[in-house]
Amino acid sequence: MTAHRKLIRRTALAATTGVAALVLAACGSDGGHDMGSMDSDSSPSASASASAEAGAHNDADVSFATGMIQHHRQAVEMAEMAADRASSQEVKDLATKIKGAQDPEIKTMSGWLTSWGEEVPADMSGMEGHDMSSGMPSMPGMMSSGDMDKLGKASGTEFDTMFLDMMVQHHEGAVDSAKTVKADGKYGPATKLADDVITAQTAEIKQMNKMLGKS
């Protein structure tokens, strides 16, 4: 009886050892294949290269972000005046739309500059006698401090006309700057934002010219 039990134990042990060997061999084969596939499909160097390319930028991108932040801030300042100075509800609605679109873009571009180790321009909007373009990259369409003072003193239909005339010039300058960074820039998100600016502000230029009776 004892000999019979020993024989059963030896047989079971041999069977278990054989199964374990087969499992290990299978795992080793599959694991080697998977790791090889992973290495060939997504190597660390390839991932790093793709990441670097996505974040690459140049001086044109920096100039665009720096200048457009100030450009947008001035547009927002103009739009905020419309709340209690415009007589046309259409002008007020347009001003609200402009502020709603450009405020988030200011935050986005400020984030870019910070991530690039560049200085975010100080917010000079709302300061009496300020010239927002002072010391900044030249941005087409920017209003002078004198223009802003005149707009701030206008009201009613006079404000409506002045606001629309100025904002058309402002938008045309923004579109020109957007086209420049599309041609000379390197940073993908900046190019995407430039596309958005061109699309939205070209449509608003047409709308404002129609409101002015020019088209």
Score class of each variant (00 low, 15 high):
171 H>R: 06
123 D>R: 07
180 T>E: 14
150 K>R: 13
106 I>W: 06
137 P>L: 01
145 S>Q: 02
139 M>L: 05
123 D>C: 10
149 D>H: 15
163 F>I: 09
155 S>R: 03
145 S>N: 11
115 S>R: 09
162 M>K: 11
119 E>Y: 00
161 T>R: 15
148 M>C: 06
144 S>K: 11
102 Q>M: 03
103 D>T: 14
99 K>V: 02
106 I>S: 01
142 M>A: 13
117 G>R: 05
109 M>V: 13
118 E>P: 10
132 M>P: 11
141 G>T: 08
151 L>M: 14
100 G>Q: 09
142 M>K: 09
129 G>R: 11
180 T>H: 07
171 H>L: 06
110 S>G: 09
170 H>F: 01
121 P>N: 06
169 Q>N: 11
174 A>E: 11
173 G>C: 09
124 M>A: 14
104 P>H: 10
144 S>A: 04
174 A>G: 15
168 V>P: 07
102 Q>I: 02
144 S>V: 03
157 T>W: 00
139 M>R: 10
126 G>V: 05
138 S>P: 10
178 A>Y: 02
133 S>Y: 08
132 M>I: 13
137 P>S: 00
105 E>A: 02
130 H>S: 15
130 H>A: 15
124 M>H: 12
144 S>N: 05
180 T>V: 14
131 D>H: 11
172 E>Q: 14
152 G>H: 07
174 A>Q: 08
111 G>A: 10
134 S>Q: 15
131 D>W: 03
140 P>A: 15
128 E>Y: 04
101 A>S: 00
135 G>K: 04
181 V>F: 07
160 D>W: 05
99 K>I: 01
100 G>M: 05
125 S>V: 08
174 A>T: 07
140 P>T: 11
135 G>Q: 02
148 M>H: 12
114 T>R: 15
